[in-house]
Design a protein around this nucleic acid. Sequence first.
DNA 1: GCGGCACTTGACCATTTGGTCAAGAATTTT
DNA 2: AAAATTCTTGACCAAATGGTCAAGTGCCGC
Lengths: 215, 215
Amino acid sequence: MPATSGSKNRRQEKEKQILLAAEKVFAEAGFGGATMQLIADVSGLPKANIHYYFQTKEDLYRQVVSNIFDIWLQAAQAFDESSGPAEGIGGYIDAKMEISRKHPMGSKVWASEVMHGAPVIQDYLEEVLVSWTEGRMKVIQRWIDQGQMEPVDPRHLLYMIWATTQHYADFQHQIATLNGGEPLNDADWQNAKTSVREIILRGLGVKDTGNEGRP
Amino acid sequence: MPATSGSKNRRQEKEKQILLAAEKVFAEAGFGGATMQLIADVSGLPKANIHYYFQTKEDLYRQVVSNIFDIWLQAAQAFDESSGPAEGIGGYIDAKMEISRKHPMGSKVWASEVMHGAPVIQDYLEEVLVSWTEGRMKVIQRWIDQGQMEPVDPRHLLYMIWATTQHYADFQHQIATLNGGEPLNDADWQNAKTSVREIILRGLGVKDTGNEGRP
DNA sequence: GCGGCACTTGACCATTTGGTCAAGAATTTT
DNA sequence: AAAATTCTTGACCAAATGGTCAAGTGCCGC
């Protein structure tokens, strides 16, 4: 008794349902610890049905990681559509913090994958990430050359931004424990965002213009 | 045909040998993905022998995580034996970068554990880490109150330091890929260390005094 | 309403897993 | 040297795992 709507996108909806469950399970147990049975239970489908849509566990996993990668790269827009480091880097930090808040499980899956040597998405790393990084490094270098910010190594600046923003997703459990056992609330997140942006922008010798333009 | 030396510390040496192999395997495969057989192979001992020293996989894992935790806390000394933020925070960053360089696998195991909800070491988190963090936060707050650094949220400053320094261990594979496929060499590490310290200390309005006093 | 087609699913299988065990080898103690 | 203790290890489980399969079930155009 399939879907309610049209008729063609039944498959898409089912796949999305499975991918959502898979993301959760992979994030909580890692690739090795995740079981198809658990993914089946979480998604509310029999295991054999999962295998109908995704032949192997690795196929499913690859899809999950790939989806995350796309979301990740979207945050790059803040970088490109900006005139200077305050707006560009500040906006990028905001965007990445927002992703950490909304897609913590995706971030965890990504971190797990990379930590274990990126066996599945090494090609993505080498192709997409390398060129993306080089592009942003050039932008940062230009800002430095124009005297808009202190001369720092763009590479390590990017690492710091990635590390710090993703920390709020990957280590959310530790952060919650240090927050009295409670997850961060709206005010906490606002505070986190501002704190991170402040320290980094001041560290770059850039005046924080706040997140004007974006809500 | 046991050891060569004394006689009593045979057990300790064997355990260390196993723990080293276990750390490597757990770091590379995660808890779920690691197998006792692989740990046995890496350590060069039959599987049954591993089980003689560590009853269960979880026992072994707990030991590995626990050892890492101790190393982690050692870096705190830089904090305590200092007079101000330049020396204290700068030294702490250096120490943590050094740990990331020398114990990347331990850092990965820790990250994996926390990312999966710290099922094994939640008690450590609640007892030791919480009180440790509160202590350092007070030190930072005192520096702020004395006007030795900009008023930032000490909590998020600590997160940033943790995130950034550990990033070089946890994401070492990604970093190597972005470094032309080569791991960081001595100069790279020096550069990374300096870059991180510079940006953060400037972000705190503290003049970087370099890592004088420590080689 | 019927024939084709996409989907569903319980039962099943080979392999791998963490863990056990008992017999023996080495070492220490008496 | 003999007894007691500690360690070693190949063979062996029961349970769980990823994946298969064939018998269905519902849906569609015709």
